[in-house]
């Protein structure tokens, strides 16, 4: 579904991604793990073509997307949920969803408003409220729903559990599992290993923009030194 090879990205002068390569299979949920500043968000933005990688390539579902404008990547079925949520705060929830709407596409679950409101019941109650009147958790739900309106094949979730209440985090985990069951391929970036393990099939750990580990969670458990070096204290 996605093949990333030797990606190098810069942010001004800072070299953020360093020859990053990994693969994601169809229907898989992969967690991109690493500490703050490890390069997770830049990876997500580079996949979405919001940051232009200086070298390397990204092949999505057989198409080389490196160098395409972001909207073309989105039209090919790449869905992006940013870390800062970036909902349109002056627009109502329904209008936010409308911005994300795209035609259904082959090989991806097709979403309707009804299906999304069933998935995120809170949003239905507040459908005519403006984005700025929502809590952090609701905003997070809305960004995911907005991206799902584009009927993506692959969903990029940047730090979905960040800054939201534990209860919502659980709800978020259930949602991601449900999306996987619908047949969606998902990449989530996370700092919270516990959360990642609940939802993902595989972990890719990065540090300083380089890949340090790529494998299943059970494999990771066998290497506590990796976990200690790159994930926590």
């Amino acid at each position: 579904m996605l093949e990333v090879s030797a990606l190098n990205s810069f942010y001004g002068k800072a070299h953020i991604l360093n020859d990053l390569s990994f693969k994601v299979e169809r229907g898989e949920v992969v967690a991109l793990l690493g500490r703050n500043g490890a390069g997770k968000t830049t990876t997500m933005k580079s996949l979405m073509q919001l940051v232009r990688p200086r070298s390397g390539q990204v092949i999505f579902d057989g198409t080389r997307i490196t160098g395409l404008p972001a909207h073309k990547a989105a039209r090919l079925g790449l869905g992006y949920v940013p870390e800062e949520r970036r909902i349109f705060s002056d627009l109502t929830i329904l209008e936010n969803l409308e911005v994300g709407r795209q035609r259904p596409r082959e090989g991806a679950p097709a979403w309707t408003l009804e299906a999304l409101f069933e998935l995120f019941p809170n949003l239905w109650e507040r459908r005519n409220n403006r984005g700025k009147a929502m809590s952090g958790g609701e905003q997070q739900m809305l960004t995911i729903a907005r991206t799902l309106m584009g009927n993506p094949k692959l969903l990029l979730l940047d730090e979905p559990s960040e800054g939201i209440a534990p209860v919502i985090v659980e709800q978020m985990a259930r949602t991601i599992v449900r999306l996987k069951n619908e047949g969606l391929t998902v990449i989530i970036s996370e700092q919270n290993l516990h959360f990642a393990r609940m939802v993902a099939d595989r972990a890719v750990i990065i540090e300083g923009g380089e890949k340090k580990f790529d494998g299943s969670f059970s494999e990771l458990e066998k290497h506590p030194e990796i976990r200690d070096a790159y994930l926590s204290v």
Binding site: Q191, N192, L193, H194, E221, P224, R227, D228, L231, S232, V233
Partner: peptide, 22 residues
């Protein structure tokens, strides 16, 4: 700070939970 339970829960997280399950 490292030993503080609340700090582990909200911030340091991950590793300790992991260790506990181990």
């Amino acid at each position: 700070v490292r030993a503080d339970a609340r700090v582990q829960e909200v911030y340091l997280g991950g590793g300790t939970l992991f260790a506990a399950e181990d």
